[in-house]
Design a protein around this nucleic acid. Sequence first.
DNA 1: TTCCGGACATGACATAAGTCATGTCCGTCC
DNA 2: GGACGGACATGACTTATGTCATGTCCGGAA
Lengths: 226, 226
Amino acid sequence: MTRERDDRPATGTSRVAPGVSEDLLKSHGSRLIRVAGGTTVFEAGDSADHFHVLKTGRVRMVSMSDKGREFTQGWFEPGESFGEPPFFAQVPYPATAVAEMDSTVWKCARADFLRLLQENPAVHLALTQALSRRLVYKALMLGEIAIEEAEHRLATLFRYLRRIAVGVPSADYRIPLTRQQLADMTGLRVETVIRSVKSMESRGVLAIVGGRIIWNGKISGGTNKR
Amino acid sequence: MTRERDDRPATGTSRVAPGVSEDLLKSHGSRLIRVAGGTTVFEAGDSADHFHVLKTGRVRMVSMSDKGREFTQGWFEPGESFGEPPFFAQVPYPATAVAEMDSTVWKCARADFLRLLQENPAVHLALTQALSRRLVYKALMLGEIAIEEAEHRLATLFRYLRRIAVGVPSADYRIPLTRQQLADMTGLRVETVIRSVKSMESRGVLAIVGGRIIWNGKISGGTNKR
DNA sequence: TTCCGGACATGACATAAGTCATGTCCGTCC
DNA sequence: GGACGGACATGACTTATGTCATGTCCGGAA
């Protein structure tokens, strides 16, 4: 049950990392740093004066409460940039970036990166789209967590995950996350996720096979209006 | 108690609307539409094929649950654009845009707007910054609502509102929102907001003068690390 | 002045979700 | 092949917040 990790959805950005090419980063004064698994790339409160791009490994963006509760803002896969919002907004990081495994990260200083963007309009547009996808996800989850109940939050997350997953959208989708990870993305506790999922299973809106949650493409379909 | 509305914080984007100039919009095939107060500019589920810029009036972005609960994603003031994330991400709107008063809105079709951006790198950068500010706010509130309790959520929102407000940051800040509006931004109910605020008042972290919440610049200051 | 509606306030009770304790199942590692 | 740890599961109890009912205050309209 460790192989799961490989198909972790890139909730951070998009299904396909458009990314800034390494050549471009190198030619614009970026430095490549190593981050050991379990340590942080930056922490909430740090000032954001570099643009970060993940080269190898995996990074999780996480918010932490005083009492140790965690909320996973998203995961980032190789090729994706992360921590750009505070970088552009010029405010301290609101969350902490943790390397879930040994990782390497490109760091590009503000002036260098702004020049890079200016010289490469296509990269800028791809970045705008990546930020937009992330904003859509955040608005979606924010609305859910603010006003919906446990099962609804989970159903919405499942639909979202299947939508951004590669493959046939009508086919069954095997949720590639543990109950704990789902809890950390929905503001719920593991027990609540377990109970909600079981309840949804008994109502037939999903199936559990070998512990894994199978979201049915047909019956629990989409929500689009037009 | 109606004058409050005028200094509504522009949580949608930023304190200063950088915006796309009207000349630019006009020269790129935009249309100006009128939206009566109380009606919607677009609704959750609609497809997003136009870029919207508010010319006059005020727009509130709101998520709604099946059972009628509302969550205010943000407000938009004249000069600000809204609904861009789904536009760029090419997905249906996740929320509904309601005109809180008679408003006028510029609408620019996709191809036209992409051309506009390409021809005006400075506008593109300003847009990236606006999106970034919004993303920082969403990440902040998402973490709060997911894992923090009522009083903490409110305190964080108050700090944020004061930070983006114009004026001396160390001075007392009068929250320009009603209890109901605060409730709609934090995923709480009015009664909970009222009780939390009173509790915070009794603990001395804020004052209530004539019903209005006064957030003290000194004692309830910032959270920055460095 | 009086009336009215919106905002603020407070008590009593209901409940979804959190918390705590325990237990099973099942791979992996020695 | 036995021990161990992580993930899943379930019962019993607690609690923060929601829900409902009701009341006061105050400014604007008539």
